[in-house]
Design a protein around this nucleic acid. Structure first.
Lengths: 266, 266
DNA sequence: CGCCTAGTTGACCAGGTTCAACAACGGTGG
DNA sequence: CCACCGTTGTTGAACCTGGTCAACTAGGCG
């Protein structure tokens, strides 16, 4: 482990087995974020859109910091993030945590469970979140009847992997400043892409400790770097709101090129 | 960038535009590695196996260190590694390189190009390699007629992403010793899984510089750690052959748990 | 009002990088 | 067959980015 961490157990939130706190069948509009997401690359036909909207979905509210799926689980359903932010993580031997991705509304972060029976990581809610659950069976049926949706879902998992690769480059070859700047660039662009950010400003409900676990640094150092970025007039970050003041400057610091996000017009 | 590197350009191999050096149609057995790979999870039916073997494949020999596909390309075909090792990488602004994955025979490292038009990274040959190229069109046809093969391919891209996540954990939260030990554990297990290693010994044709670019460290430090691992009686590594002497010990050092590779019997 | 979480600061420490030189090896041309 | 050369591996010393520890501040909320 990178260096012995003591306060390990704090990361492992107590399991909340009172699941399905507010389970119900969706009203029509609840999985619109998913539809928007799918349509953001190729427009859906009337037929396809109806097929998605008609799927049986179970909704659930999750409190900030709670797990949605846990490493070792063998899910029989996929989840769709409808409101709020999610993140994937693993806890290593000494108790320290590595966050591997953040997820925004419309995404299906555990879609892989459709083909990989055992979860090799956990999925948590960053902020209070609304999750939709759809059974694997129904997803499979959807894909069988609507191959284009299947392609879109496969494509999403590929973009997901592309983001992982980009993060790896950051962790291996960029210094702290670039890495944090890069994270901010990415999240802003992704939020913009689904219409959840405008004016270079977005909701970003994560503590510096969470950022530290995502970029593989210590909270203290994240704090110092964030202050630097503020002092340099690149960003403002407070109360879970990120405002990018100097977009070009931030991009330059981050060595950021959004190609890897494979947004619509390539 | 992590710290200013000078000798950057050395990494960027001169383009070799005399492609297709030895292009020809495959004889029947040439894409067997792919068949073995696909069958390693779910056995293929006679029919499916024939469909794969019947695909038109163009073979090409690639010298060590040459690129197979380059960042920014818009491929119209996928490649299958038939012999030799491949690796994915990106070069950052200051010229330093991050390797994001290694690939062994039977794998299709640029399968994503089927759904993502522009390559967001490059793919190179680690050693002299034989590559089979299959047109996107033919792959799409195969998937349409044989949905189970499509599922297997999707699944492979998901395992690929799982490996990326595991590497991220290493880069973010493990120290140099664990990271290198982890890499050795992973490569050995993957080689064993496709029958290319026995007796805890495998071909591993990579220099310490390549390892360094993969684990995000300097060559010098990789060298020191490898010597440590040797001195501790965990491994032998010479002439491109890795022998794991103390498998349990190495696994312990690496904090290695092969679940994330999602091999057959989970 | 008091507590808990998140953010901030300073002093010290250490894992890993850089630089530079050298050894070992294989391949090549003469 | 041997001298030469480029690549890979090895070593030592100085240095620096980022981690650890510990204390303290600022809000938010019951």
């Amino acid at each position: 482990m990178k260096s012995r961490r003591k306060k390990s157990i704090a990361y492992v939130k107590p399991p909340d087995h009172k699941e399905a706190r507010c389970s119900m069948t969706s009203d029509t509009s609840s999985i619109m974020p998913l539809v928007r997401k799918l349509a953001s690359i190729h427009p859906l036909t009337e037929d396809e859109m109806r097929a998605v909207l008609d799927m049986p979905v179970h909704l659930r509210e999750v409190a900030a910091g709670q797990d949605i799926v846990r490493q070792g689980d063998r899910p029989s359903q996929c989840c769709v993030l409808l409101e709020g932010f999610g993140f994937r993580y693993k806890v290593v031997g000494d108790g320290s945590r590595q966050i591997m991705s953040f997820h925004i509304p419309g995404e299906m972060p555990d879609l892989m469970s459709l083909h990989l029976t055992t979860m090799d990581h956990s999925l948590g809610a960053l902020s209070r979140a609304t999750i939709g659950f759809i059974s694997h069976q129904d997803v499979r049926r959807l894909i069988r009847h609507h191959p284009h949706i299947g392609d879109a879902l496969w494509r999403d998992t590929l973009v997901d992997a592309a983001v992982l690769r980009e993060w790896m480059v950051g962790m291996g070859r960029l210094d702290a400043r670039s890495r944090i700047a890069h994270l901010f660039c990415e999240l802003l662009v992704r939020m913009e892409a689904v219409g959840l950010a405008q004016g270079k400003r977005t909701h970003l409900p994560m503590t510096q400790g969470v950022i530290a676990d995502a970029v593989g640094m210590s909270t203290v150092h994240v704090n110092r770097i964030v202050q630097e970025l503020r002092a340099d007039g690149l960003i403002a970050l407070q109360n879970g709101i990120l405002t990018v003041i100097d977009w070009n400057g931030l991009q330059r610091v981050a060595d950021f090129d959004p190609t890897y996000l494979h947004l619509a017009r390539e």
